[in-house]
Design a protein around this nucleic acid. Structure first.
Ligand code: MN
Ligand code: MN
Ligand code: ZN
Ligand code: ZN
Lengths: 135, 135
DNA sequence: TCCGCGTTTGGACGTAGTCTAAACTCGTGC
DNA sequence: GCACGAGTTTAGACTACGTCCAAACGCGGA
């Protein structure tokens, strides 16, 4: 993503643009693979080797708090950062652990609104299985 | 759960019953709160203070491998052990982090079978929101 | 009773993530 | 332009969760 665009996007979300934050944004916002903080750090360091681990964690959490990212707790041991913040579902490949987006309209859910004990504010279907190799 | 019953259950699942494993079983199998390993350890220690942390982890993982428990990755930072191994859905209270079971039939899902790219072997609906205080 | 193998144990280790305090930087006001 | 202060970044310490290891243990079968 173009640096000027990133700066505008950060400002729109009330985030002061710094070189580090711009680098993190460019490293994570286009990434549909639901990367971990570690993975984002590795990518950011390629361009700006001085960026610290703490800054990457701080920045990812800030982005999540400001609505630029959504934190997904789908696998054990690590947190996935998801630049796709609109509601959608997820499919997880059992063999590889890879997380894939499933469009909101691809799956229909009903009944969640009529649960007596719970006020459901958000929901998603989490699927696990095997990704088909493309033909 | 009665000790004799627990021993029989472990044998049925191909697990050699030991005092430690019996204690872990009694600590986790009746617990519907999706406890962490740490929490199970604390409960087990009350009755048998000599049981080590390693044994609790080993045993919980063994139980999961043998189908007595299911591992649920629903919250950040920790793994939930679920003695309810039949398919069901989950509701997570945003404030407290508490995880509640939602019966399989309370929610309906459709469309997951017709995803071209994925062979869905298992799925559940994960809901987040606020638990209603009972009237 | 003795033996051997499966189990248990404490502690070391690995890893994900947070915290801290000092240094730095950037925007603002003079 | 310059000084200032709030906000940001940094390295490294620290915490928490989980696994690994090698030695000790103990149960079940000969
Ligand atoms: Mn946004
Ligand atoms: Mn079973
Ligand atoms: Zn996603
Ligand atoms: Zn459950």
């Amino acid at each position: 993503m173009l640096t000027e665009k990133v700066i505008a996007l950060l400002r729109e979300h009330g985030i002061q643009p710094t070189p580090q934050r711009i680098a993190v944004a460019q490293g994570v916002l286009g990434d549909g693979t639901h990367p971990s903080a570690q993975r984002v750090w590795e990518r950011v360091r390629r361009r700006r080797p001085a960026v610290s681990r703490a800054t990457v964690y701080n920045t990812l959490n800030l982005f999540a708090a400001k609505g630029l990212l959504k934190v997904q707790a789908l696998s054990e041991g690590t947190v996935a950062f998801d630049p796709h913040v609109a509601p959608h579902h997820h499919f997880i490949d059992r063999e590889t652990g890879a997380i894939f987006d499933v469009p909101w309209d691809a799956v229909q859910v009903s009944g969640q609104a009529s649960l007596a004990a719970f006020e459901v504010q958000e929901y998603q279907v989490v699927m696990r299985g095997r990704k088909r190799r493309r033909a």
